[in-house]
Design a protein around this nucleic acid. Structure first.
Lengths: 245, 245
DNA sequence: CAGTGGTCTAGACCACGTA
DNA sequence: ACGTGGTCTAGACCACTGT
């Protein structure tokens, strides 16, 4: 591996440049999950530095969860993690199954369109990028559990355009394919309007928990999802240990 | 500084032991905010190791935000951070003032009592520890903004017993004094019952956002807070960049 | 100016896990 | 058994910053 162009990233320390280089290759998809990262001695040769320096970079990447390291076998790029690792939102299928209920979902809307001003503002899209607009209902047993409305940035995830979302719901499908680096959640309570009341089979005005999640890979926006849960049947848990290792 | 007793923490690497030792002194309050951490060369002598090893520990503590490092001046223990650094819940006073509204709060309940079974289960208290039970209304202008119900573990924070909470609301007071290491939030939507409707001056059944926050310092439970906001006027934002530095 | 942290080196030994 | 990562050393030079 040759060091990437680092003309923009001057004045950083060497181990940080090595870290950024590798992180860039992983987030860009050049090194997909399962790809073997060069051994320490290979990086040592590539960057012309000592082993301690590349070790520092690789150790940090491992702590960040981007790679897994094993003696003798070397380091490999990790599969994209579910968001649950950070904010304990499980994949909805898992959530439902942990309640001991059978899970199914149905896709209720699926169309490709140019992004509008609202999308651009909320997801930070540029110009007239294409997005895939989806809606989906998740069921726990025979009851609607969650209403999902989502747009996917097709310039970031072009393969979504021809995906039928038969086996995996859009969220689960994305998590499997796209490594994300930043997620922002906005959470609020809202009385169900007519449309939501109908979709979730609750009375109009019922308190609902609304979670909007925006996800980026590096600087590139990936998806914007709005999940609406009936308030009484759902709570969100987030546990933090600030930055500790 | 002498290395702490590490009989329980065998088989950890040396830099991890150094890190744990210092972290323990900070979280226990033995080294309060502003306290100067020993220089690297002092730790080198105390632990009989090389400078790289203590540097690794101190660098991690700085990344975790427990200490701040400055050349020539050494490292000092950081003031306890507001939770906003992690989950962007600001101190309520700040939240209100950012809306451009005058802030005030009133304490509506304050009593010391033995903890009951419910407290023990929810906060992980042991035996018959004493707790301080508080309730508090926060106002934005003349409108109630948030209802806060809280218990504080008096064995962890004994000085709370004689605190009047005149200038600082209980949450702000705690953040200033107690360094926390872990926080867990549970978030749900709930229709306002009679009591909440009255306290927040909204109609019964209005969708409200309820945040329960449990906080620990190391293993010791500190406080359990329940914050209830009127749904339409409030949203919570959390942004994550998983462990990246 | 002097003292501290930031970074890096060129070695070393060991533990672990795979082959 | 052997190759890799995990850890540590005893130096070094430099940048920053407070005095």
């Amino acid at each position: 591996m040759k060091p990437q162009d680092t003309s923009r990233t001057v004045s950083k320390s060497l181990h940080q440049r090595i870290l950024s280089d590798i992180e860039g290759r992983i987030l860009s998809g050049e090194w997909p999950p399962g790809h073997r990262v060069p051994f320490e001695y290979e990086l040592t040769a590539a960057y012309g530095c000592s082993r301690m320096t590349v070790n520092k970079a690789l150790t940090q990447l491992a702590k960040a969860g981007l790679i897994e390291r094993r003696r003798k076998a070397g380091s490999v790029v990790t599969r994209p993690r579910s968001q649950s690792a950070v904010l304990q939102i499980h994949d909805i299928r898992t959530e439902v199954q942990e309640l001991g209920l059978p899970y199914r979902f149905e896709l209720t809307r699926r169309r490709k369109r140019k992004c509008n001003a609202d999308d651009r503002e909320r997801l930070g899209l540029r110009d007239a990028a294409s997005v895939l607009e989806l809606a989906c209902r998740h069921f726990a047993g025979s009851d609607p559990f969650c209403l999902e409305e989502r747009i996917i940035n097709l310039s970031a995830v072009p393969e979504a355009e021809h995906e039928a979302f038969k086996d995996d719901a859009p969220g689960a499908w994305l998590v499997k394919r796209v490594p994300w680096s930043t997620a922002e959640h906005t959470i609020r309570a809202m009385g169900a309007d007519e449309e939501i009341a109908k979709a979730l089979a609750v009375a109009k005005g019922t308190a609902c928990l609304v979670i909007e999640r925006r996800t980026w890979s590096g600087e590139e926006p990936i998806t914007l999802a709005r999940l609406t849960y009936e308030g009484g049947s759902y709570a969100l848990t987030a546990r933090f240990t600030p930055n500790r290792n």
